[in-house]
């Protein structure tokens, strides 16, 4: 690496397996928003069995898939559990969406009562529900002391209940974690979990930039980001906020 040049390493987990709901857009947004500021990015596409050292990485993205694909990824991640846990404790910035989110918790209980163990990195559990929770969502987050409204689309049967851990935000419209307690997602150290597709990051640049800043901070680099022109994102978000909140 050249002296002074910043290169962030982005780890996209199972891109070939988990290609549902456009979640790869999260990686696209992270990468572009780095590049637009002259921060170089290396994207590591890690598929089943590929070697990877999580602690070397700066940002890790884990999405969800259909049942079959999710089982394959759960098996593969189980083998890497300790390495992932060490990286998480070390402050690795992680975004986990939907099925990827559920996998980080303690377990998933099916409708028939089978308990499928999760990786147990975060203190929450998930139970299958009869009705899928589907629809547009508005969530209020706090980012660096500022209240930010993010929009997205949820589609999940699992109901997640948090233990000693903060939610990502508060549901203004939609179901969120379980349709009962008004929480959405989870937050632990630099791990961000959410049910929101849409995808989450391109629609919500404020959150994306926060995840970039955290990665820079972890490396001991200046975390101030040059502002970008986000007018299109703002217009798109306004359309949905107006429709859903009024």
């Amino acid at each position: 690496m050249q002296k002074g040049k910043v290169v962030l390493k982005v780890c996209h987990l199972y891109p070939d397996l988990l290609n549902l709901y456009g979640d790869r857009g999260n990686v696209m947004a992270y990468v572009r928003r780095c590049q637009w500021r002259g921060i170089e990015v290396e994207v590591h596409r890690i598929n089943l069995g590929d070697p990877v050292d999580f602690r070397e990485m700066d940002f890790l993205f884990l999405g969800g898939g259909s049942d079959r694909e999710q089982n394959l990824m759960a098996k593969d991640l189980e083998n890497r559990r300790e390495l992932l846990q060490a990286a998480v404790e070390d402050g690795l910035v992680v975004l986990a969406i939907c099925g990827g989110y559920q996998l980080l918790g303690k377990y998933y209980r099916t409708l028939e009562g089978h308990v499928i163990p999760g990786l147990g990195l975060l203190d929450f559990y998930t139970e299958a529900g009869r009705e899928r929770m589907i629809g547009n969502v508005v969530v209020e987050l706090e980012i660096e002391g500022e209240h930010v409204r993010v929009t997205g689309f949820e589609n999940h049967a699992g109901r997640t209940f948090l233990g000693q851990i903060s939610p990502l935000g508060r549901v203004l419209v939609g179901y969120g974690n379980n349709g009962e307690d008004g929480t959405e997602g989870a937050r632990y150290k630099n791990v961000f979990c959410s049910y929101l597709h849409g995808p989450l990051l391109p629609k919500n640049p404020r959150l994306t930039d926060h995840l970039i800043s955290l990665a820079l901070m972890r490396r001991g680099l200046p975390a101030e980001l040059a502002p970008l022109d986000d007018r299109l994102e703002r217009v798109a978000a306004e359309v949905m906020l107006k429709r859903l909140l009024m």
């Binding site: 456009g22 589907i134 629809g135 689309f153 589609n155 995808p199």
Partner: peptide, 9 residues
């Protein structure tokens, strides 16, 4: 389709 996330695929 109410979910337009697929545009990212």
């Amino acid at each position: 389709g109410r979910d337009i996330s697929w545009l990212w695929d």
